[in-house]
Amino acid sequence: MSDSNKITFSPESEALIKNLVKRYPEGKHKSALLPALHIAQAEFNGWLSAPVMDKVAELLNLQPIEVYEVASFYSMYNLKPVGKCLIEVCRTSSCWLRGAEDVVKHIEKRLGIKDGETTTDGKFTLKTVECLGSCGTAPMLQIGQTFYENLTLEKVDKILEEWKDAGKHSSYLDEHTFRNI
């Protein structure tokens, strides 16, 4: 067992996870695992370390392996550290048809990294992903919960500029994402 007792969630996050459990019938608290992992990832620098996952297991009263199984199945959970800004570029058919490769090449050149890598200063991670449902506004990329669509290389430059001094890790959620019950 890893050292989960060193991990502490903020009181808000812990309360939110407890609140999420109310969405399911009694005894079905495992259903809160996916949102809880998102919350954990948002809180701990955009990725899930083993101690963080163990802590989630503890909060939801699950076996750690149940958490690892789930965390490693879904592509949005990062099991390795990522840069402050995680750039996810869609590369499937419609985006490819409209120039996604040029976008990826451009970012690789600008940041000096390849797909899947993080810049040495820890600011950016580039990840190519499969269809994000933005085919009509292709090409596109996602950073946190924001979709940047109808990309041109100039737009990409602006986005990189916008994110170069990000203070916090890009996140899929914010404090308003989930409604309290």
């Binding site: 495992k30 259903s31 996916l34 949102p35 789930v70 199945f73 959970y77 992903v129 269809c131």
Partner: peptide
């Protein structure tokens, strides 16, 4: 309920598994 990146969860029984907090 939020997913976490898995096309397969569009298949209805995989979706239910995922909704139960499991692998899809």
């Amino acid at each position: 309920q939020c997913g976490a990146g898995a096309y397969i969860c569009g298949e209805e029984t995989a979706l239910l598994e995922s909704l139960e907090g499991k692998r899809g």
